[in-house]
Simulated scan of single mutants.
Amino acid sequence: MADTPDLRVMIVEDQAILAMELELVLTDAGCDVVGCAMDREGAFAIGDRERPDLALVDVNLLDGMTGPQIAHRLVQEYGTAVVFLTANPEQIPEGFAGALGAVSKPFDEMTIRAVVAFARQFIFHKTVGQAPRRFRLAPWLKTPPRDIAPH
């Protein structure tokens, strides 16, 4: 990993135990966790301050179904790559709000590590690798390479 910069990651998850577990896995995977939020307001504050490379965002948070709004803003304003974490994949909006894809809960450490490696390749090399197992790739990433950047 010496040839790529640390991946700056934000966690947006309202289950504190799960957020802490994610932070441990991400740190162990060589990521710099720049903040954890439980709702839209907290996510926007961290996003504004830290400009993360990657955000793992639960779809349904303490303040409701705000995950897609958070994803859209992070992607549009900061170019942050977003991965949804959700127990209800049907709640992901069409087009994935610019997110790279989604992981269904419950998930394991190996899945998170694979998703981080996938996101790292996309962020730093602008290429789309093989989607990890248990990772639902966003429809916009299945388009021809010239259309990879979200609009």
Score class of each variant (00 low, 15 high):
Ile123Glu: 10
Arg146Thr: 10
Leu61Gln: 07
Glu21Arg: 09
Gln91Tyr: 07
Val115Arg: 00
Ala55Asn: 00
Glu94Thr: 08
Thr27Cys: 03
Pro145Met: 13
Trp140Arg: 09
Glu90Pro: 00
Leu137His: 00
Pro145Thr: 03
Trp140Gly: 03
Thr127Ile: 10
Ala16Cys: 07
Asp147Met: 13
Ala71Trp: 03
Asp32Tyr: 04
Ile11His: 05
Ala2Asn: 15
Ala55Val: 04
Ile123Tyr: 12
Ala131Glu: 13
Gly79Phe: 10
Asp39His: 08
Phe107Asn: 03
Asp28Lys: 13
Ser104Pro: 01
His72Thr: 07
Ala97Tyr: 04
Gln91Leu: 14
Val82Ser: 03
Asp32Phe: 05
Lys105Gly: 02
Arg120Asn: 05
Ile46Asp: 05
Ala16Gly: 05
Arg133Lys: 13
Gly42Pro: 01
Lys142Asp: 06
Ala119Asn: 00
Ile46Phe: 01
Gly98Lys: 05
Gly129Thr: 05
Pro106Ala: 13
Gly35Gln: 06
Thr4Asn: 01
Ala149Pro: 06
Asp53Ser: 11
Asp58Pro: 10
Leu137Glu: 09
Phe118Tyr: 15
Leu24Cys: 00
Arg51Tyr: 10
Val116His: 01
Gly35Ile: 11
Asn88Trp: 14
Trp140Ile: 06
Asp58Gly: 08
Asp6Met: 14
Ala29Gly: 05
Gly95Asp: 08
Arg134His: 15
Met20Asp: 10
Leu26Ser: 01
Ala16Ile: 07
Ile148Gly: 01
Ile70Gln: 05
Thr86Asn: 03
His125Ser: 12
Met65Val: 15
Phe118Ala: 03
Val12Glu: 00
Glu13Lys: 07
Phe96Gln: 04
Ser104His: 04
Gln76Asp: 12
Phe122Met: 14
Val34Lys: 05
Leu22Cys: 03
Tyr78Asn: 12
Val33Leu: 06
Val34Pro: 05
Thr66Trp: 03
Leu141Ile: 06
Asp39Glu: 08
Ala29Met: 10
Leu18Glu: 00
Thr27Ala: 14
Asp3Lys: 15
Pro144Ser: 08
Phe118Leu: 08
Phe124Arg: 01
Arg49Pro: 05
Gln76Thr: 15
Cys31Tyr: 05
Ala71Tyr: 05
Lys142Gly: 14
Ala37Pro: 02
Val33Gly: 00
Glu23Ile: 06
Ala71His: 07
Arg134Leu: 11
Pro68Val: 02
Ala149Cys: 08
Asp48Leu: 08
Gly129Glu: 11
Leu141Ala: 04
Thr127Gln: 14
Glu23Leu: 00
Ala149Phe: 14
Val9Ser: 02
Gly67Phe: 11
Met110Asn: 10
Gly30Phe: 12
Phe44Cys: 07
Leu18His: 00
Leu22Ala: 07
Glu13Ile: 04
Met1Leu: 10
Glu50Thr: 01
Val75Phe: 08
Glu77Asn: 15
Arg49Phe: 06
Glu90Ala: 11
Arg73Ile: 04
Glu77Asp: 15
Asp108Ala: 06
Glu23His: 13
Glu41Phe: 11
Glu77Gly: 08
Glu23Cys: 09
Ala45Ser: 12
Asp3Asn: 15
Pro144Lys: 09
Ala2Gln: 14
Thr4Cys: 09
Glu50His: 06
Pro144Asp: 04
Leu137Tyr: 00
Arg8Gly: 10
Leu62Gln: 13
Gln130His: 14
Met65Ile: 15
Pro139Ser: 10
Asp48Met: 07
His151Gln: 15
Phe107Trp: 11
Val116Lys: 04
Phe122Asp: 08
Ile46Cys: 09
Phe124Ile: 01
Arg136Asn: 12
Gly64Ile: 01
Ala114Met: 06
Ala119Val: 09
